[in-house]
Amino acid sequence: MDKRELLSAEHVYKYFDGTPILQDINLKIKSGEVVVIIGPSGCGKSTLLRCLNGLEKIAEGKIELDGDMVDPASKEICRLRERIGMVFQSYELFPHKTILDNITLAPIKVQKRKRTEAEEEALKLLERIGLSAHKDKRPSQLSGGQKQRVAIARALIMHPELLLLDEITAALDPEMVREVLEVVLDLAKEGRTMLIVTHEMAFARAVADRIIFMDEGRIIEEGTPERIFEAPETERLQRFLDNMSF
């Protein structure tokens, strides 16, 4: 399969109250590629993710999804976001809806798909993540790991071209991290294009085709997992990796 370029960010800058958060970010993701961003807290990696689907406005630069400009001010932004799935650290399921309705809301209301068809696919997804029995429950009745798996299913049903995962295990108890990461590993095997922000280094290594190390709003290093973990070129990455392990 020809690996075409799916997402590109060029010379992206972003400021909060004059403080630079992202500085000259250049990023290209090919279709089917799994890219993991690592870096210390506050390095701008989550902000970068949020800029990529237009949740944050960028000050300068250009972001394109398959040739279409990502611009939060444009009318097309909703259409674009349908094509970019995002899963958040705090799950953000809709508390007033059942698990099944959480998953089918957007396909029915946004993509105008038939309810029966959307529910059929939702049930398949629930089976895949092992939560079929919980379809009629409310999010409040589920554990964190279960909620996060539902959030992944909710993103998947939209058939996104790109999936953004923003520290999806950071709010979970340690024993629930695995069940969520296994779902993501499974998606990677399937050839999904993903951009993942995580603090789980072993997972990053296992899932990534390419790893990007960010610090202070800049991309410092990028390379294959082996290269990044075994032969860090910069002192900053070296120090970061040292801090991440005991």
Binding site: R81, F88, E92, R154
Partner: peptide, 21 residues
């Protein structure tokens, strides 16, 4: 939470749909 608006937006919902649903 603000993130409820954001997760709706991330699913492609317009502001109107986010409020309604």
């Amino acid at each position: 939470p603000k993130a409820q608006y954001e997760s709706s937006a991330a699913l492609g919902m317009s502001t109107a749909k986010t409020y309604i649903y």
